[in-house]
Amino acid sequence: MLMFTLKRLGLAILVTFTVSLLSFSLLFMAGDPASAIAGENATATDIEAIRALYGFDRPFLVQYADWLFGALSGDFGQSYYFKMPVSTLIAERLSTTMLLGVCGISFALLTAIPLGVAAAMRPNSLIDRTALFLSVMGQAMPSFWFGLVLIVVFSIQLGWLPPSGSSTWRHFIMPTVVLGYYAMPAIMRLTRAGMLEVLNADYIRTARAKGASETRVMFKHALRNAVVPVVSLAAVQMGFMLGGSIVVESIFALHGAGYLAWESIGRNDLPTVQALILIFSLFYIVFTFLSDLVNAWLDPRIRVG
C-alpha cells in the first residue's frame, strides 16, 4: 500500500508540473501580453516599456521558473484588472466555490448511492422506476433552467429562500440542489449497474449462506465492491464542480472562482486566468489521487498496480 501511494503521488506531482507549464504558456499563446496590457491605443514605445516592466523580454524558461517559484509560495503576481495580488483575489472567491462544491457533491452522493442501491435491490419496482425518472430528469434539465424554476418557486412565490448572494447558509441551499442534481444521475446509474452485477456474484451467495442479513449483504458485501468506479466518477465530478460551476454561480450571484475565471477571460486578465487554471487542475489531480487511494483501500487487488 505504501509503494502504491508513493507511485501515485509521484505521478500526481509529474502531472502538476506539466499542467503548470501549460497554464504558464497560455500567457504567450494568447498573443503578445505586453500589447494586451498596454491597450489598443498604446504606442510601440509604451509597449516596449511595459514589456520590460513585466519582464516579458526575458527568456521563456526564466519567466516560467520565476512564476513557478512565486506560485509555490502562493504568489501569482498582480491582477491586471483589479490591480491587487491574484492570491488575495482568488482566496476569497475560492472559499465560496469550495463550500458549494463540497455541498453539491455531498448532496449528489447522499441521494444517488441510496437510490442506486434501492433500485438494484428491486429492479423494475416502483422505486427503480422513480430513480430512473429522477435521473432522466436530471440529465435532461439544463442547470440554468432548473435554477430559475427553484428561484421562482422558493424565492418569489413561497419566499422561503433568498434568491441570490452568499452571506448565510440558506443562500447555499438552492445552488447545492442544482449543482448536486446535475451530478446525481451518472452516480446513481453507475451505483445501480455496479450493484446489479455484484449481487449476482458467488461471494454474495456465500455471504447469505453464512447467515448474513440482507442489509449486511447489501452494504458490507456488495456495496464495497460496487462502489469502486463510483468513487472515480465522483472525483472527476468534484473537480468539475470546483472549476466549472460557472452557470450555477451566475444564476445565484454567488461570486465564486468559476465566475471569476469567466470574467477574467473576458478581461484578458492573464495572471488571474493562469492561477485559476493551475488551481482547478490541481483540484482534479488531488481528487484523482485521493480517489485512487480510496479505491485501493476498498479493493485490495488495486493495491498491487
Partner: peptide, 9 residues
C-alpha cells in the same frame, strides 16, 4: 467455484 466464492474486498 472457489475462485469467486470469497469476497475479494
Amino acid at each position: 467455484e472457489p475462485m469467486t466464492s470469497l469476497n475479494p474486498a
